[in-house]
Protein backbone atom coordinates (compact mmCIF):
# COMPACT_ATOMS: atom_id res chain seq x y z
CA UNK A 1 0.00 0.00 0.00
CA UNK A 2 1.27 3.41 -0.92
CA UNK A 3 1.72 6.07 1.71
CA UNK A 4 -1.21 8.44 1.22
CA UNK A 5 -0.52 10.95 3.98
CA UNK A 6 0.03 14.29 2.22
CA UNK A 7 3.20 16.31 2.47
CA UNK A 8 2.55 19.04 5.05
CA UNK A 9 4.79 21.60 3.33
CA UNK A 10 2.87 21.19 0.11
CA UNK A 11 -0.43 21.56 1.92
CA UNK A 12 0.73 24.81 3.53
CA UNK A 13 2.00 26.08 0.18
CA UNK A 14 -1.36 25.28 -1.41
CA UNK A 15 -3.13 27.18 1.34
CA UNK A 16 -0.91 30.22 0.92
CA UNK A 17 -1.28 30.18 -2.86
CA UNK A 18 -5.06 29.99 -2.63
CA UNK A 19 -5.28 32.73 0.00
CA UNK A 20 -2.99 35.13 -1.85
CA UNK A 21 -4.59 34.25 -5.18
CA UNK A 22 -8.09 34.92 -3.89
CA UNK A 23 -6.99 38.27 -2.51
CA UNK A 24 -5.40 39.29 -5.78
CA UNK A 25 -8.31 38.16 -7.94
CA UNK A 26 -10.54 40.53 -6.01
CA UNK A 27 -8.44 43.50 -7.11
CA UNK A 28 -9.51 45.89 -9.86
CA UNK A 29 -6.29 45.92 -11.84
CA UNK A 30 -6.18 43.19 -14.45
CA UNK A 31 -2.45 42.67 -13.94
CA UNK A 32 -3.04 41.79 -10.31
CA UNK A 33 -5.95 39.58 -11.25
CA UNK A 34 -3.58 37.86 -13.65
CA UNK A 35 -1.04 37.18 -10.90
CA UNK A 36 -3.89 35.96 -8.71
CA UNK A 37 -5.10 33.60 -11.41
CA UNK A 38 -1.58 32.23 -11.83
CA UNK A 39 -1.34 31.62 -8.09
CA UNK A 40 -4.76 29.97 -7.88
CA UNK A 41 -4.09 27.68 -10.79
CA UNK A 42 -0.70 26.69 -9.41
CA UNK A 43 -2.40 25.97 -6.10
CA UNK A 44 -4.88 23.76 -7.91
CA UNK A 45 -2.06 21.99 -9.72
CA UNK A 46 -0.25 21.29 -6.46
CA UNK A 47 -3.51 20.03 -5.00
CA UNK A 48 -3.83 17.46 -7.75
CA UNK A 49 -0.22 16.46 -7.23
CA UNK A 50 -0.86 15.93 -3.53
CA UNK A 51 -3.96 13.95 -4.44
CA UNK A 52 -1.68 11.41 -6.10
CA UNK A 53 -0.01 10.50 -2.80
CA UNK A 54 3.60 10.67 -1.75
CA UNK A 55 6.37 10.79 -4.34
CA UNK A 56 7.97 7.47 -5.24
CA UNK A 57 10.14 5.94 -7.92
CA UNK A 58 9.45 6.20 -11.65
CA UNK A 59 6.40 4.13 -12.51
CA UNK A 60 8.13 1.67 -14.83
CA UNK A 61 7.51 -2.05 -14.41
CA UNK A 62 10.81 -3.73 -13.74
CA UNK A 63 12.57 -0.58 -12.57
CA UNK A 64 10.66 0.21 -9.39
CA UNK A 65 8.96 -2.28 -7.10
CA UNK A 66 5.22 -1.84 -7.37
CA UNK A 67 4.62 -0.50 -3.89
CA UNK A 68 7.14 2.33 -4.34
CA UNK A 69 5.96 3.70 -7.66
CA UNK A 70 4.64 7.24 -7.71
CA UNK A 71 1.28 7.75 -9.34
CA UNK A 72 1.92 9.04 -12.87
CA UNK A 73 -1.66 10.11 -13.59
CA UNK A 74 -1.79 13.30 -11.48
CA UNK A 75 1.49 14.37 -13.01
CA UNK A 76 0.05 13.94 -16.47
CA UNK A 77 -3.03 15.88 -15.44
CA UNK A 78 -0.98 18.68 -13.95
CA UNK A 79 1.15 18.87 -17.07
CA UNK A 80 -1.98 19.37 -19.16
CA UNK A 81 -3.33 21.95 -16.73
CA UNK A 82 -0.02 23.85 -16.74
CA UNK A 83 -0.02 24.09 -20.51
CA UNK A 84 -3.61 25.32 -20.54
CA UNK A 85 -2.87 27.89 -17.82
CA UNK A 86 0.15 29.11 -19.75
CA UNK A 87 -1.97 29.78 -22.82
CA UNK A 88 -4.70 31.52 -20.87
CA UNK A 89 -2.21 33.63 -18.91
CA UNK A 90 -0.75 34.82 -22.19
CA UNK A 91 -4.23 35.69 -23.41
CA UNK A 92 -5.05 37.62 -20.23
CA UNK A 93 -1.77 39.49 -20.53
CA UNK A 94 -2.65 40.44 -24.08
CA UNK A 95 -6.05 41.65 -22.89
CA UNK A 96 -4.48 43.72 -20.12
CA UNK A 97 -2.12 45.24 -22.65
CA UNK A 98 -4.93 45.98 -25.08
CA UNK A 99 -6.93 47.58 -22.30
CA UNK A 100 -3.93 49.74 -21.44
CA UNK A 101 -3.54 50.65 -25.12
CA UNK A 102 -7.16 51.75 -25.33
CA UNK A 103 -7.78 53.33 -21.96
CA UNK A 104 -4.33 53.89 -20.47
CA UNK A 105 -5.27 51.65 -17.56
CA UNK A 106 -6.03 47.98 -17.10
CA UNK A 107 -8.86 48.15 -14.64
CA UNK A 108 -11.74 45.76 -14.84
CA UNK A 109 -14.72 48.03 -15.29
CA UNK A 110 -18.31 47.70 -14.22
CA UNK A 111 -21.15 46.92 -16.51
CA UNK A 112 -22.08 50.40 -17.78
CA UNK A 113 -25.45 49.37 -19.11
CA UNK A 114 -26.29 47.78 -15.78
CA UNK A 115 -25.41 50.98 -13.99
CA UNK A 116 -27.52 53.03 -16.34
CA UNK A 117 -30.56 50.83 -15.67
CA UNK A 118 -29.86 50.97 -11.94
CA UNK A 119 -29.69 54.77 -12.11
CA UNK A 120 -32.99 54.90 -13.93
CA UNK A 121 -34.48 52.64 -11.31
CA UNK A 122 -33.12 54.82 -8.51
CA UNK A 123 -34.80 57.82 -10.11
CA UNK A 124 -37.90 55.74 -10.67
CA UNK A 125 -37.82 56.72 -14.30
CA UNK A 126 -38.94 54.89 -17.41
CA UNK A 127 -36.28 53.42 -19.62
CA UNK A 128 -38.05 54.77 -22.68
CA UNK A 129 -41.12 56.71 -23.54
CA UNK A 130 -44.16 54.90 -24.69
CA UNK A 131 -46.12 56.77 -27.32
CA UNK A 132 -49.29 54.83 -26.67
CA UNK A 133 -49.37 55.48 -22.94
CA UNK A 134 -48.50 59.13 -22.64
CA UNK A 135 -49.66 60.76 -19.41
CA UNK A 136 -49.23 64.22 -17.94
CA UNK A 137 -46.27 63.17 -15.82
CA UNK A 138 -46.28 65.54 -12.91
CA UNK A 139 -46.16 63.40 -9.83
CA UNK A 140 -43.44 61.10 -11.12
CA UNK A 141 -41.26 64.01 -12.12
CA UNK A 142 -41.52 65.32 -8.58
CA UNK A 143 -40.66 61.92 -7.21
CA UNK A 144 -37.75 61.73 -9.58
CA UNK A 145 -36.37 65.02 -8.34
CA UNK A 146 -36.34 63.67 -4.78
CA UNK A 147 -34.95 60.25 -5.59
CA UNK A 148 -32.28 61.64 -7.90
CA UNK A 149 -29.01 59.73 -7.86
CA UNK A 150 -26.17 61.76 -6.38
CA UNK A 151 -23.62 60.43 -8.83
CA UNK A 152 -25.54 61.92 -11.70
CA UNK A 153 -24.66 65.57 -12.09
CA UNK A 154 -27.37 66.58 -14.54
CA UNK A 155 -31.03 66.99 -13.85
CA UNK A 156 -33.45 64.12 -14.08
CA UNK A 157 -33.25 62.48 -17.46
CA UNK A 158 -29.83 63.68 -18.53
CA UNK A 159 -27.96 60.70 -17.12
CA UNK A 160 -28.90 58.28 -19.84
CA UNK A 161 -27.04 58.39 -23.07
CA UNK A 162 -29.86 57.80 -25.41
CA UNK A 163 -33.24 58.50 -24.12
CA UNK A 164 -35.60 61.30 -24.63
CA UNK A 165 -36.63 64.06 -22.26
CA UNK A 166 -38.06 62.86 -19.00
CA UNK A 167 -41.69 63.00 -19.86
CA UNK A 168 -42.79 60.53 -17.31
CA UNK A 169 -46.26 59.43 -16.74
CA UNK A 170 -47.85 57.78 -13.83
CA UNK A 171 -49.35 55.03 -15.89
CA UNK A 172 -49.30 52.14 -13.50
CA UNK A 173 -48.95 49.55 -16.24
CA UNK A 174 -45.52 50.89 -17.08
CA UNK A 175 -43.69 49.22 -14.23
CA UNK A 176 -40.65 48.90 -16.40
CA UNK A 177 -37.94 50.15 -14.15
CA UNK A 178 -39.26 49.16 -10.80
Amino acid sequence: MIDMSPNLTLVVVIGVLFAAGTYLVLERSLTRVLVGVAMLSNGANLLILVAGGAAGGPPLIGVTPEGEMSDPLPQALVLTAIVITLGLTAFLLAMAYRSWQLHRHDEVQDDVEDRRIARLAARDERAFEDTDTEGDGETLAEEAAIARDETDRGGPGSGAVDHGPAQDDEDSTAGVTR
Binding site: V37, S41, A44, L47, A51, G52, P74, L77, L88
Partner: peptide
Amino acid sequence: ILSSILFLVAIGAVY
Protein backbone atom coordinates in the same frame (compact mmCIF):
# COMPACT_ATOMS: atom_id res chain seq x y z
CA ILE B 1 -10.87 30.94 -15.74
CA LEU B 2 -11.97 30.98 -12.12
CA SER B 3 -14.66 28.42 -12.82
CA SER B 4 -12.06 26.26 -14.56
CA ILE B 5 -9.80 26.47 -11.52
CA LEU B 6 -12.70 25.44 -9.31
CA PHE B 7 -13.34 22.52 -11.63
CA LEU B 8 -9.67 21.56 -11.43
CA VAL B 9 -9.78 21.65 -7.63
CA ALA B 10 -12.89 19.47 -7.72
CA ILE B 11 -11.09 17.05 -10.01
CA GLY B 12 -8.15 16.90 -7.59
CA ALA B 13 -10.53 16.18 -4.73
CA VAL B 14 -12.38 13.51 -6.69
CA TYR B 15 -9.10 11.83 -7.56
